[in-house]
Amino acid sequence: MEYLLIVATDPEAEPFVPEDDNVGDWVDDLESRGIRVRGQRLRPPTDATLVRMRGGELLVTDGPFTESKEWMAGYDILEVESLDEAIEIASRHPMARFGRIELRPAWPMDVHEPGRDRHERERAEAAAADG
């Protein structure tokens, strides 16, 4: 299964200790095992750009400057057997201590299926699953 591992800051986490930032070992280990597809650190929200189309008009702004102290600081894409493996890997990332990690499973879809068909099919499937 493919997971997006989101590295986030967290004001409630342990204070950052630069000497304990062993993210290089973490990446080397995963790449030698073929688990990490790719990943990057991200610049902070102050360097973000927001793009919106509203009423056919393009709006480009800097931001978003939300008050939140928890923001996305990086990402990795993992290819693993199961959630348990992803959890074990996430738990060894230094930012699990100094921040927090969110694991999001990929939700594969056929991008060429017409949007209307997909929308209706998935609604019907959700209704069937809810019994």
């Binding site: 299964m1 997971y3 057997e81 199961s82 959630l83 348990d84 992803a86 074990e88 499973p105 939700w107």
Partner: peptide
């Protein structure tokens, strides 16, 4: 199913 929780006994470490 969606989150990928496996159907297995955890390994010795966990």
């Amino acid at each position: 199913r969606n989150a990928g929780i496996p159907y297995r006994v955890p390994d010795a470490a966990s």
